[in-house]
């Protein structure tokens, strides 16, 4: 059986919000090291890989490997019923056909319990090849989210051009064009605000902003984001 408790439900709320636009149904693969998710979107344009390590839960117990087939639209609706600061406990029994979620307010005067029916999700486990990327850009995740949102007013596509001392995001459409250039900064107080560009060779690649905007929804999970680019290789965010 699985039993895992998170001190704050907001962590799973943010994760589900970041994933639900891309993934309809997928397995939570649970084992003693944690809960993993790997899924492609329906058009096989994006792969989502997520690992919630056992150390992030207290307590965490998983007796044997189990795959819990989750409908993310349903889970997202249920997670909206949790307060951000609620304790969250998820449970699934042996051969379970439901995932049980319990939300407990901080002073324990409100306890909500929901069961979500599990599904059979037929999914391949994919290996992600080790890649030496031509360019790796680290920047504040909120800045990346804003760039994707701002450039969406001009085009459905953004070209990301990484050169030695800058990265340029360019959008060009029927009504005009726009670009945002981000330069590395070293002397910043907060690590999350740091911008670095690590370059093996300059690259210039185009991506659908629809997908980048989906990925940017994960910006609430971490202060910084890393973009890794190479020709003929999927962008890794």
């Amino acid at each position: 059986m699985l039993e895992a408790r998170l001190p704050s439900a907001v962590t799973l709320k943010k994760i589900i919000d970041a994933v639900k636009e891309l993934v309809q149904d997928a397995n939570f693969d649970c084992n003693d090291s944690g809960i993993a998710l790997q899924a492609m979107d329906s058009s096989h344009v994006a792969l989502v890989a997520l690992l919630m390590r056992a150390e992030g839960f207290d307590p965490y117990r998983c007796d044997r490997n189990i795959a819990l087939g989750i409908n993310f639209a349903t889970l997202a609706k249920v997670m909206k019923c949790a307060g951000n600061d609620d304790n969250l406990t998820i449970k699934a029994g042996e051969d379970a056909d439901v995932l049980s979620l319990m939300f407990e307010s901080t002073n324990s005067d409100r306890i909500s319990e929901f069961d979500i029916k599990l599904m059979d999700v037929d999914a391949d486990h994919l290996g992600i090849p080790e890649t030496d990327y031509s360019a790796t850009i680290k920047m504040p995740s909120a800045e990346f989210q804003r760039i994707c949102r701002d450039l969406s007013v001009m085009s459905e596509t953004v070209t990301i051009e990484a050169v030695k001392d800058a990265v340029k995001f360019i959008a060009s459409g029927d009504t005009g064009s726009g670009s945002i250039t981000v330069k590395p900064n070293q002397a910043v107080d907060k690590k999350d605000m740091e911008v670095t560009v690590t370059l093996q060779e300059p690259v210039k690649l185009a991506f659908s902003l629809k997908y980048l905007n989906h990925f940017a929804k994960a910006s609430t999970l971490a202060g910084s984001v890393t973009l890794s680019l190479s020709d003929d290789v999927p962008l890794m965010i």
């Binding site: 344009v45 994006a46 090849p129 459905e156 659908s208 999927p234």
Partner: peptide
């Protein structure tokens, strides 16, 4: 590109 290409071929099935 208006549409992104599939990336499925990049990954190996385990």
């Amino acid at each position: 590109p208006a549409g992104q290409r599939s990336i499925a071929a990049f990954f190996t099935k385990k």
